[in-house]
């Protein structure tokens, strides 16, 4: 291992260590409640943040027409009409950022009606942090290897 590899490793550690620490941690379950209003063409609030293992209960209402509340990765699929209220309960089993989509054609911008459920581990969005770490590592390693290649050729 040369000096450059060592620098790379050191650079990756501050990101990799908390990442793997959080991955190995056992999730603690909490019951979380959210009031979500679906309207053309958004969910309010647009982002829900919970921890892995949380039991999530969403009280869903519609401000205008019939909308869906669909999270494919967690098997959540519910619809709500105007004036109606639906209670949806699910367990946030998987970590990640999951799109909440409207499953009922609700108007022109329906395909863009997106919300987000972020399931963290101990308060960390590990998918984002992990991906960012990978991107930084990819960038640094590419720079190091590609930069080195030409020098070798010239020598």
């Amino acid at each position: 291992m040369n000096k450059r590899h060592l620098i790379l490793l050191l650079l990756s550690l501050p990101i990799a260590v908390p990442l793997f620490t959080s991955i190995s941690a056992q999730p603690q379950s909490t019951h979380r409640y959210f009031n979500v209003t679906a309207r053309q063409f958004a969910y309010e609030p647009g982002t829900i943040v919970v921890n892995q293992g949380d039991i999530v209960t969403v009280r869903l209402r519609s401000a205008d027409v019939t909308h869906g509340f669909y999270i494919a990765e967690l098997g959540v699929n519910e619809t709500v009409s105007f004036g109606e209220e639906k209670i949806i309960t699910f367990v946030a089993e998987k970590v990640g950022a999951f799109k909440i989509r409207c499953s009922v054609t609700c108007g022109p911008l329906h395909p863009f009606m997106v919300g987000e459920l972020i399931v963290e581990q101990k308060g960390l969005n590990v998918v984002f942090i992990g991906s960012t770490a990978i991107i930084i590592l990819v960038g640094v390693v590419s720079f190091a290897l590609i930069g080195k290649k030409r020098v070798k050729v010239e020598q």
Binding site: A42, G46, I100, F112, V114, G115
Partner: peptide
Amino acid sequence: ITQGPWGWLRD
């Protein structure tokens, strides 16, 4: 705009 959770941006 089209894939984010920000409804106001779409509006």
